[in-house]
């Protein structure tokens, strides 16, 4: 039974219609969650006892950093599914991730630098967490560059999939870097076992922002994947309907 679901999900016209229908169901909750998170984080949460109001950077820095990692895992996983099952939908999803992931990795680095300056006294340090996150940005850029250098979409999909899968080894390195090595960067305060090390008034807005950014990413991915599917299904009949071409031309 599970395979029936898998094959339906893998059918481009079915995925295209599903993606069209689902997009508002992620976009609107994303907007509401982020609005609530911003009010909670900027207005309602008390200042930190050490960092004062400077800690409020966390409400955009942590969601950006979370997306930088999650988007990469989605990109590498769908690339692997595409390679193994030769699934067009999976390749379309993988290719849709790169620009989103690269921009949020750059944002995580930039907001991290702006947070580091007042708290650590420096914008940049060749620290394990910062260096491995910079490497993630280069992986995204390498993936995009590789795709752009190959004209044939099918070949670009297969070549970039290998790069994405090899690069996934960097994801656990980034996540555990603050535990494995001495780092300027603080240890995780949400994604760890046991109780989070934050009071609820600070933690709840952060969770809202993390959920909001995740829903926002899904909405973006659904929009982009539809375009990528149209680029790959050049001769399929369903694309005429999906592209909005009328029956009479």
């Amino acid at each position: 039974m599970a395979w029936v679901w898998f094959h339906r999900f893998g059918s481009p016209p079915h995925f295209y219609r599903l993606a069209t229908r689902l997009t508002p169901w992620f976009a609107w909750p994303a907007a509401l969650l982020c609005l609530a998170g911003l009010i909670g984080g900027l207005v309602l949460a008390p200042p930190d006892y050490q960092q004062g109001d400077g800690f409020r950077i966390i409400y955009v820095h942590a969601p950006a950093a979370w997306l930088s990692l999650m988007v990469y895992v989605v990109m590498a996983t769908s690339a692997a599914v595409g390679l193994i099952w030769r699934m067009t939908v999976a390749y379309a999803v993988s290719a849709s991730c790169a620009v989103i992931g690269a921009s949020f990795t750059a944002l995580a680095l930039a907001t991290g630098m702006l947070w580091g300056r007042p708290m650590w006294g420096t914008y940049w340090e060749w620290d394990p967490r910062l260096t491995s996150e910079l490497l993630l940005l280069f992986l995204y850029l390498g993936y995009l560059g590789l795709r752009n250098s190959i004209d044939d979409v099918g070949r670009a999909d297969r070549a970039s999939a290998v790069l994405a899968i090899v690069g996934v080894v960097n994801v656990p390195i980034i996540h555990y870097s603050v535990i494995w090595w001495n780092s300027l960067h603080q240890a995780p305060s949400v994604m760890k076992f046991g109780r989070p090390t934050m009071p609820a008034a600070m933690l709840v807005p952060l969770l809202l922002m993390l959920a909001g950014f995740t829903a926002y990413f899904v909405a973006l991915l659904l929009i982009r994947a539809r375009g990528e599917l149209l680029r790959r299904e050049r001769n399929a009949h369903w694309t005429a309907e999906a592209a909005g071409a009328t029956a009479t031309g």
Binding site: V99, I100, S103, L107, L114, I223, G227, E228, L230, R231
Partner: peptide, 27 residues
């Protein structure tokens, strides 16, 4: 930080819609 985030969030919406529209126009 908040201005940069708003820019990245807004640009990604714009890029995604543009990517879909160009694929539809090409089709």
């Amino acid at each position: 930080c908040y201005v940069l985030t708003a820019a990245v969030v807004g640009l990604n919406i714009r890029w995604a819609l543009r990517s879909l529209h160009s694929a539809r126009a090409a089709a």
